[in-house]
């Protein structure tokens, strides 16, 4: 077995076993931490498709995270007030059902990613970073100054949304939902990276000219990748909102975009399980260093600096060696 495969198995095993142990030992807070890891990993898995495979440095993925969050917040707030979302031309009511909310979150964030991608992908390099950042700021300031759904204060949802047959208020059951969704996304991500589409996308990252020469439209490849990437991050946003039972404009802030990139980089960019390792490391640091010092982000800063300057493969790259997956 290759070292990276072994490492991936260890990471997923730990993410599954730690909350199971916590469930037996009756430590709900640990389960919540693991749920956060699973959800933030999912956001990172989404970004990794654009960033790792496509080489698209998006400093605006908070847009999709936030759209997912607000999809949940808006639908659930209408359901909890018993006020319809739209009355004419046809009736749309709010809902407290997770699958419906996920579907709405995925579809709206995919649509947003399609439009934003179509506009942003006309630029490249540093201009692409900046235009995605600008779109993120647009959404951030819009939600702050739009009073209908809480404005700057955000929206609270009193009861977690339901999933047929499960009690989502039980931490371990909610964790199970998130873990299954993360596994599905990882599976999809590994299929995508090995598919003809994924190979062409990787090729377009490595040498755009060659890809264009063999007659592949690199713009369309990147647009599809950006859309899939946004959809997965949007789903993560809906779950994150459900975990906290709260959405606020912070989900759209550029720091959120930065943090999602940090998950991917800390773990190892372009590695399938990189976002999972990165998010786990981030949450562990936040939990343990945050307990030691109020200023734990100084250490996070130094760690990130060290990873960027000296350990460019991230956690997985350092532990599993430099080779890139070919299987």
């Amino acid at each position: 077995m290759r070292r990276e495969t072994l490492l991936n198995a260890v990471i997923m095993g730990a993410l599954l076993l730690v909350p199971l142990w916590a469930w037996v030992a009756d430590e709900p807070f640990t389960i919540t931490l693991a749920t956060r890891v699973a959800i933030l990993s999912l956001a990172g898995v989404g970004l990794n498709i654009a960033l790792g495979l496509g080489g698209l440095v998006s400093l605006g993925h908070a847009i999709f995270f936030g759209i997912g969050g607000y999809a949940m917040g808006i639908l659930a707030s209408h359901a909890q007030d018993y006020s319809p979302l739209l009355e004419s031309p046809f009736l749309i009511e709010g809902t407290k059902s997770m699958p419906v909310i996920w579907l709405v979150a995925i579809v709206t964030s995919a649509l947003a990613a399609l439009v934003i991608g179509a506009l942003s992908l006309r630029t490249s390099g540093v201009y692409f970073i900046m235009i995605t950042l600008a779109f993120g700021q647009m959404f951030f300031f819009f939600t702050i100054s739009w009073p209908a759904y809480g404005g700057e204060d955000g929206l609270s949802i009193y009861v977690r949304n339901g999933f047929p047959g499960l009690n989502t208020l039980d931490p371990i059951q909610f964790f199970a939902i998130c873990f299954v969704l993360l596994s599905l996304a990882l599976f999809a991500s590994s299929r995508i990276s090995r598919s003809p589409f994924g190979l062409a996308l990787t090729a377009a990252r490595q040498s755009e000219t060659r890809v264009l020469t063999v007659g592949i439209d690199s713009f369309r490849l990147r647009l599809v990748a950006f859309t899939i990437s946004g959809a997965i991050t949007g789903l993560a946003g809906a779950l994150f909102a459900d975990l906290n039972r709260f959405v606020s404009p912070t989900m759209f802030s550029w720091q959120t975009s930065g943090e999602i990139i940090i998950f991917v980089i800390l773990g190892g960019v372009g590695r399938l399980f990189g976002p999972v390792a990165g998010a786990a490391l981030f949450i562990l640091l936040e939990h343990f260093l945050g307990g030691l010092s109020e200023f734990w982000q100084i250490y996070l800063g130094f760690l990130l600096l060290a990873v960027v300057l000296f350990a460019r493969g991230g956690l997985i790259g350092t532990l599993a060696g430099r080779e890139v997956a070919h299987d």
């Binding site: 960033l51 440095v57 970073i129 990139i261 980089i265 800063g301 990130l304 600096l305 960027v308």
Partner: peptide, 12 residues
């Protein structure tokens, strides 16, 4: 990407 991340770390 490296420049964005390293300078983001400097902000922190």
């Amino acid at each position: 990407l490296d420049q964005v991340l390293a300078t983001f770390a400097l902000i922190l």
